[in-house]
Nucleic acid binder design. Structure first.
Length: 112
DNA sequence: CCCCTGACGGGCG
DNA sequence: TCGCCCGCCAGGG
């Protein structure tokens, strides 16, 4: 099922970074792409997430777009994504993460 | 083989 | 400040 046979490292790296996101924090597709040096950009990350939405071990709800908008909430069901985030102490209003700059987890800055 | 689409992002008007 | 357009890469029709 996994297309990992074609892009093993890229997909795995992306999932790896996502798994490293601390609870109560979020990150953006662009941040992940930048950290991994994916010239393909954020689109590739979003695409990778789409391919993994069946994997419960990946906290995909902690990945939002550069505006802090829950663009992928549609894939979690009605308000599942927002519920998961709020459950971790992240405030969400109108499908947008509040205090985004505070909860944003930047791998290239905080991952050592 | 060609065209369209997509959990994005940055640039320009 | 808001909205539109283009780039990027892979998969599906």
């Amino acid at each position: 099922m996994l297309k990992s046979e074609t892009q093993p490292n890229k997909f795995d790296d992306i999932y790896q970074v996502v798994r490293l996101i601390p609870q109560g924090r979020v990150t953006s597709y662009g941040a992940i792409a930048e950290y991994l040096g994916l010239k393909s950009g954020a689109r590739f990350v979003g695409w990778a997430m789409n391919a993994c939405h069946a994997d419960p071990t990946i906290p995909a709800h902690r990945v939002v777009n550069s505006q802090g908008l829950l663009t992928g909430k549609f894939y979690f069901g009605e308000n599942r994504m927002q519920q998961l985030l709020e459950n971790e102490g992240i405030m969400v209003k109108n499908d947008k993460v509040l205090n985004f700059n505070q909860v944003l987890w930047r791998p290239f800055l905080e991952l050592i």
